[in-house]
Design a protein around this nucleic acid. Sequence first.
DNA 1: TTCTAAATAGTATATAATATCATTAGCAAA
DNA 2: TTTGCTAATGATATTATATACTATTTAGAA
Lengths: 129, 129
Amino acid sequence: MNGTSQRSTMQKGIVFDTVTKMRCHPTADMVYEKIHTEYPTISKATVYRILKQLAAAGEILKIPVPDGADCYDFNISPHYHIKCTDCGAVGDIFLKADPQLEAADTCGYKVTGCTVIFEGKCGTCRGDL
Amino acid sequence: MNGTSQRSTMQKGIVFDTVTKMRCHPTADMVYEKIHTEYPTISKATVYRILKQLAAAGEILKIPVPDGADCYDFNISPHYHIKCTDCGAVGDIFLKADPQLEAADTCGYKVTGCTVIFEGKCGTCRGDL
DNA sequence: TTCTAAATAGTATATAATATCATTAGCAAA
DNA sequence: TTTGCTAATGATATTATATACTATTTAGAA
């Protein structure tokens, strides 16, 4: 282990490792800020670019969040996400059934993917009541 | 019928009626452009504001589209959406089961809502193969 | 009519993400 | 080592989406 996971460039290794170490569904900007403290010469464009590449390659997940910036998730196992209606915190959610399997081709589209974003109130915000 | 649906302001009536008449899941900007041709003095900010209000009031649906602008749907009956991976066209999709019912509270959140966006290839783009 | 509150038009600003492009890094061949 | 090529990067500019701001307008009440 050299901190770069032996990827093709140092930047890719740093971005991947940073996302993997952050357990909070960070946005691209959060990943950048985290990296920036330790590697101030890595540019924001590079972080955005690499996160997009990693997601396209299936090494991380990109989570499109309604009314907010996309988040990323190191956990690529099948699961879904929920956003707190109060504080915006994103959490994991697990479903028994895959909603995509339910999507009959009644729309003229060939269904190849599915994004599910739940919303609710997180434990912290429920405690604030 | 006077074209304004007797809403509180003329602008609200025009926005609502325009969305209702557009059957293509328009973005706020598309609604604005449509309105602008006939009512050039109605501002873009007003269209955005009213669409948001109508969605919050449950009179129309707001569809958060990954990698794109939010769309609006006059059809508020329970259904889901799919975006073409090629052309971006948004279509309707119908599921037998409500994914929200499957979301057990295993995440510490109280689940109150759910957004599902499928992706696939629309009929037109499939025909282009 | 005058007053008041809400809504609007127009512009400015914020945010997120990508595009652009000169520079740099990595690497193979000479 | 030096040269040359390709891809990646850093820095900035630009785009796209959406909201904030504020002077003005509108609508209705007194």
